[in-house]
Design a protein around this nucleic acid. Structure first.
Lengths: 316, 316
DNA sequence: ATCTCGCGCTAATGCGTATTAGTTGGGGAC
DNA sequence: GTCCCCAACTAATACGCATTAGCGCGAGAT
């Protein structure tokens, strides 16, 4: 159209202006006009093949992104991810095509399309992590991970600090015998909660990993005045069980949930619980991923949690 | 590694077995073993550059996909889209990088990465539609569109039939004077509702496009016994206004909403309303898009609506 | 008039794959 | 022994762009 070479168009298109690249102003204008007129847009695929960059961020989940059940739980992460991606001019590639294997790498994995990938989910496959590192594919896990030999880049919630702070609050309210009800592992998020709990000093702390239906009895046996539960859903059940048993919450026993409702179980807003900064985590994950793509090192970032007050933590 | 050429690897990788393509079984096995051992995966970018296919479906929205407000409205569409995409082995590319322009085509649009694109949103830019057709990019609109000169491929709700069915129900309940409260345009979904309404026969039908605060008075003046409202939120307000006015719903006036709650306004499950098969629409959109990618023609598919019973439509 | 210099541009190449025409070597037919 | 044919593979090319070395030409210097 303009009579110039493909190379010139490329130079104009990318607005290249070095000392070794010179385009006469009138030529540049002519090309720009033609681009405007035709609405030409460089093929992003070919462009990626050369430059190695896309501004496409992958999002890999080990569960459906838009599920019926866990929607409420994952949604805030995605809101943060989308907001930040939009600000940075990045598109999001949702990897859904792994129904059978739930593995990142499979016969025709499209991982390579994205410049980097955000991992979302309660569990993350250990082999996948190793493979990602091996391939040199940039990634960030939402939720702390430590199961890949080395440190895994991640954005997590600072459970140890949050649980420690809650312990202090409980102590200030007069609680001296406090229980941790939950597995304490193997998921990092559970282990971190328990770690923060056991690191707390002063009070009598007891970890009760047994099945939840034994908890009411155990609470009486151990003469606990407050209990911290890994899961919100368990807290709902426990409060019901305690009250059915004639014990008052928080009059006799205070109950604190160390997690957000998962969306699968019941929700009770009156229960005092940890609030995970999920949107902020999504946001930060995008930031950290783009840094990793630019060549940044491994970063593990822990964000502070806040507390949903509720009404199940009271003075003794 | 195996001493064979790149071409051979490609042939084995793609499991090509024609009469003009012959690979000795042992060679094939040797290559497969090497692929297994190294975990080699063909670069999807280069692959796309050649074949023109990705199995990546774009999702373009004129509003954030994961918004705070409209989350509840869009979510069902996305659930359907994701489910079907997963079944078909496709990944989803969410175009978020258009904050300022809200246009599909911009300086470095990544539209071209996807094999085709689903358009989601109340409004769709007319120029964008024309451009999509011009570029030969496969696409499907969720929601009926007619503003691109020619027919636009879409999956929509069959509002005319649904509204007509509701009119019949109202007539069977004894209503003879029924009002349509809403703009009746310019959005196709609104126009379709009004069209279905006006096509209904038998009863005294009146279209009242005036501002909503004049509706209660107009209902009395026109001696209407039932009203159909474009928007659920308006129905909520109207019911409140009528009751504050001493009129009973549905005793004196029946109220029917012709749409789902948008997520932005109030929600009232007691209001009788049309139920849009949103998940099904998402599902069908993916199906239709993949057909369009395979070269199918323009299809406009309208899905039947059902009714959320509620309690605001009664006998006269 | 010849030489030099540098501006403005283009030819050529590579990215990693799919595809197709073409090449090689060995075995069977005569 | 010669010819032919076919199985089994490979060389070469295209995809559309970014990049870089280098070419041609006109103006200023000598």
């Amino acid at each position: 159209m303009t009579g110039v070479s493909q190379a010139t168009v490329s130079l104009v298109l990318n607005n290249r202006t070095g000392d070794d690249v010179r385009i006469a102003p009138e030529t540049r204008q002519r090309v720009l006009d033609a681009i405007r007129a035709t609405g030409y847009v460089a093929d992003p695929v070919a462009r990626r093949l050369v430059s190695g960059r896309n501004r496409i961020l992958g999002v890999f989940t080990y569960e459906p992104v838009f599920p019926a059940t866990a929607a409420d739980f994952y949604h805030p992460f995605l809101v943060g991810i989308e907001q930040r991606a939009e600000q940075l001019g990045c598109d999001l590639l949702l990897f859904t095509s792994h129904a059978e294997s739930r593995r990142i790498f499979h016969a025709d994995s499209r991982i390579g399309i994205a410049d980097g990938t955000i991992l979302l989910g309660r569990r993350v496959d250990r082999d996948d992590l190793g493979r990602l590192v091996g391939e040199g594919h940039a990634f960030v896990s939402v939720g702390r991970r430590d199961d890949a030999g080395g440190p895994v880049p991640c954005v997590g919630a600072d459970y140890p600090a949050a649980v420690a702070a809650l312990l202090e609050r409980a102590a200030a309210l007069g609680h001296t015998r406090i229980g941790y009800l939950g597995t304490g592992g193997p998921a990092e998020s559970h282990a971190d909660r328990l770690r923060g709990f056991l690191a707390g000093g002063g009070a009598h702390l007891v970890h009760l990993p047994q099945p939840s239906r034994q908890w009411p009895a155990a609470i009486g046996r151990e003469r606990l005045t407050a209990v911290f539960l890994e899961e919100h859903a368990d807290a709902v059940d426990l409060v019901a069980a305690l009250r059915a048993d004639g014990r008052e919450v928080p009059g006799d026993v205070s109950v604190v949930a160390l997690g957000e409702p998962s969306g699968a179980g019941p929700v009770d807003e009156t229960i005092t619980r940890l609030r995970i900064p999920r949107r902020e985590m999504g946001w930060q994950a995008v930031d950290q991923l783009t840094e990793a793509i630019e060549g940044g090192g491994v970063v593990q970032r822990l964000l502070p949690c806040t507390v949903h007050e509720g009404a199940t933590l009271g003075a003794i």
